[in-house]
Design a protein around this nucleic acid. Structure first.
Lengths: 333, 333
DNA sequence: ATGAAAGCGCTAACAC
DNA sequence: GTGTTAGCGCTTTCAT
C-alpha cells in the first residue's frame, strides 16, 4: 500500500480511503488509485484489515465428515451465501470425536472467525465448548445436528415426524416387526427420529420389542457386522429404518451378501440425500432432507447474528421439512 | 495478552515467548503463563501473528464442486495432513466457472494463504491466474485436475492408461462400438482418458467412429437429454466409458427409463469413487481413483513447497494409479 | 479533499 | 531470564 501511495504521490490514508470507496475522496483520485491498484496487481492484506477492524470476514463450518452427501450439499448451501456476502469459509472435520470438536472450537476464538456453523459429533455429550464461544460473543448456530437443551440457534428438520412417518409407512406396507438403526444415543436427530418411530409403533398397536432401537457404532466393518448379527438373529426384523445415510451401504451389502431380498423379506428406509437412491438395487426409499437449504438457511441465520449487533439469534429455531420418497425398497410385496 | 502480562506481572514479551515455548524462558514462568492462559481462556490472535510472521498457517483448496464423492474424499485427505501440520483449510468452489476460479485465486494473494491446492474447472482455458500466484511466491499444486503445459506441481492419476484399460475391458467383454463420454474438451483428465480410450480401439482394430468421444456439457437435465439422444440414436453404442462420476447417474437413469439392459444391451464403466457402486442396479464397474491419497499426497507436496524456502516444487509430478474394479455393468453376456 | 499519526495484537531484535 | 521497543499493513480520528 505504501508503494501504491508513493507511486501516486498521495498518502496511504488516501489510498486506503479510495480503496474502500470513501465519500471523502474525489472521484478523480479514486479512479487513479483503483487503476494503479489493478495495474500493480495490488490486493489488501486481509489480516492487517482484520486486525484493525476486528472482524475476519470468515466463518467456520464444523462437521463430522465431508464424505457424505448430506454434508456436502449443506456445505454447498453455506458456501453459496458466504460467497454472496464476501465471506470466506474454513472447514473443520471432527471425525465424530468430541475431543476434536472441542479443540476446533477453541481455535475459532480470538477473532479467527466471525461466526461458526456446527453439526455436532455423535460423541458430543456436553455443550461447554459451544457456550464458551457464545460467551465470547461469537455467533454460533447448529445445522442438522443440534445439541439439545442449550440456547443456541439452529436449523433442523422435522425428525420426530419423519421417524413417525417412516414407521407408519413400513407398517402400511406389511411390516410386523420393524427396527430403527441409530448411530448414537446422544445425537438428537437419532433420538427424535427413534422417538417418532416408536410412537408410531405404539399408535399402531405394535408391541415395541426391547431391541426396537439398535445402536450401530464404530468403524464401517463394525457396523457391517452389527447389522449382519441383527439380520441373522433368530428374531430377524422385517423392516429397517436407518437414521443416517452411511448406514444404507451396510444394510444393502449385508442383504445382498445374505441373499435376503429387499423388499420381499425385509423392507428398508434410510434418512438420506443419496443421489444414487433411485438407481440402487432395489431403488431405495428415503427420507430426504433439504440439505442445501439447511446449509443456506443456517448461514443466513448466522449472518443475521453477525451483522446485527443487537440481534439475538440465540432462540431462533428453524425447522425445514424432510420428505419421504417412496421407492421399491419399502414396497408391499 | 497485555492482560495476561499484567495479571502475572511480567512483560508481554515474556508471555509471548513463554507461549511459543521459547528456550530463553524458565520452565517456571512458562508453566505459570500456560496455566494463566488456560485459566483465562486466552488464545493468541491469529491475525496479529499472521501479520507479524507473514504466514497465515492456512491453505486454500479450490475445486469445482464439493457434492461429489471424489472431491469429498480428496478434501478428507488434504484436511488430514493440514490438521497434522496445524494448518487451517479454506474451501472455495468454482462451480466449474473459469471466472469464479480467477476471482478466487485473486483472493488468495496478499498473504491470505500460504499455499493453494486446485482442481481446475472444466472451463479453464488459460493459466494466467495460476502463474500469477506463482509469481507472488505462493506455492500452488494441482490435484487430479491439472492444467497442462505449465510448470506447476501436480498429483494426478494414470489417465491415459486407464482410458486404454477401460476400452480394452469393454472390447474383451464383447463391445463392438463403445463410446467415451467427456465433460469438457479443455480438461486434461478427460482428454487423456479419451486418448487412451481411442488408442485401445486402434490397437484392437476397431474403427474409431467420428463420434467416439462425446462431450456432455451443461446442467443435469441437459446432460440427461444428451445421453438420451445418444442412446436412442440409430447407431446406438454398445458400451460407454464415462469420464467422471457425475455422468454415472444420468447414464443409469436413461437406461432404466428406456428399459435398456445393462450389461446385456449396453455395458458401462465410470471413472468414479462412488461408494454405492457395488449396490447399484446393476453393480457398476468403476475406474476407482485413490481420492483420499491424491488429496493427502497433494497436501504433502504443497507443504514441502511451503516449508522449504528453496525447494522448487514446480516440476514435481506425482502419478498415483487408479484401478479398474470389475462389476456387473460391464460383464460379457 | 488530503495527510499525519496512533494503534489493532503480536514477535523479535536488542538491551539489561 | 526478562523487559523495552519497533513495526507487520491497515483504518481512522483529527488536522489542515
Amino acid at each position: 500500500m505504501r508503494e501504491l501511495a508513493k507511486e501516486l504521490k498521495v498518502s496511504v490514508a488516501t489510498v486506503s480511503k479510495a480503496l474502500s470507496d470513501s465519500h471523502e475522496i474525489s472521484e478523480r483520485t479514486k479512479k487513479k488509485v483503483l487503476e494503479a491498484a489493478a495495474r500493480l496487481n495490488y490486493t489488501l492484506n486481509p489480516y492487517a484489515s482484520s486486525l484493525r477492524n476486528k472482524k475476519s470476514k470468515t466463518i467456520a463450518v464444523v462437521l463430522p465428515e465431508v464424505a457424505d452427501n448430506f454434508f456436502s450439499l449443506a456445505i454447498n448451501g453455506i458456501q453459496s451465501v458466504a460467497e454472496k456476502k464476501g465471506y470466506h469459509v474454513l472447514i473443520y472435520l471432527s471425525h465424530e470425536k468430541f475431543s476434536n470438536e472441542k479443540s476446533i472450537l477453541a481455535e475459532c476464538t480470538s477473532g479467527r472467525v466471525d461466526g461458526v456453523l456446527i453439526a455436532v459429533s455423535s460423541e458430543t455429550t456436553d455443550a461447554g465448548h459451544i457456550l464458551n464461544l457464545q460467551r465470547q460473543n461469537i455467533p454460533i448456530a447448529f445445522f442438522d445436528r443440534e445439541f439439545e437443551g442449550v440456547a443456541v440457534a439452529k436449523v433442523i428438520t422435522n425428525d420426530f415426524e419423519c421417524g413417525y412417518l417412516s414407521a407408519v409407512h413400513l407398517i402400511k406396507n406389511g411390516c410386523k416387526k420393524p427396527v430403527f438403526l441409530s448411530i448414537s444415543s446422544s445425537l438428537a436427530i437419532c433420538n427424535n427420529r427413534a422417538k417418532g418411530f416408536k410412537a408410531a409403533l405404539l399408535d399402531n398397536k405394535i408391541t415395541i420389542p426391547e431391541k426396537a432401537v439398535i445402536e450401530c457404532k464404530g468403524s464401517k466393518e463394525q457396523v457391517y457386522s452389527q447389522i449382519k448379527n441383527l439380520l441373522t438373529s433368530i428374531n430377524r426384523p422385517d423392516g429397517i429404518v436407518a437414521s443416517v445415510e452411511r448406514l444404507a451401504m451396510s444394510v444393502y451389502l449385508v442383504c445382498h451378501q445374505m441373499q435376503l431380498s429387499i423388499p420381499n423379506e425385509i423392507k428398508v428406509i434410510v434418512f438420506s440425500t443419496l443421489e444414487t437412491a433411485p438407481i440402487l438395487n432395489p431403488p431405495l426409499t428415503t427420507i430426504t432432507q433439504p440439505a442445501f437449504e439447511i446449509g443456506k438457511t443456517a448461514a443466513e441465520l448466522l449472518f443475521k447474528g453477525i451483522e446485527k449487533k443487537k440481534y439475538n439469534m440465540v432462540n431462533e429455531t428453524i425447522m425445514l421439512p424432510s420428505v419421504l420418497i417412496q421407492r421399491t425398497s419399502s414396497q408391499m410385496c
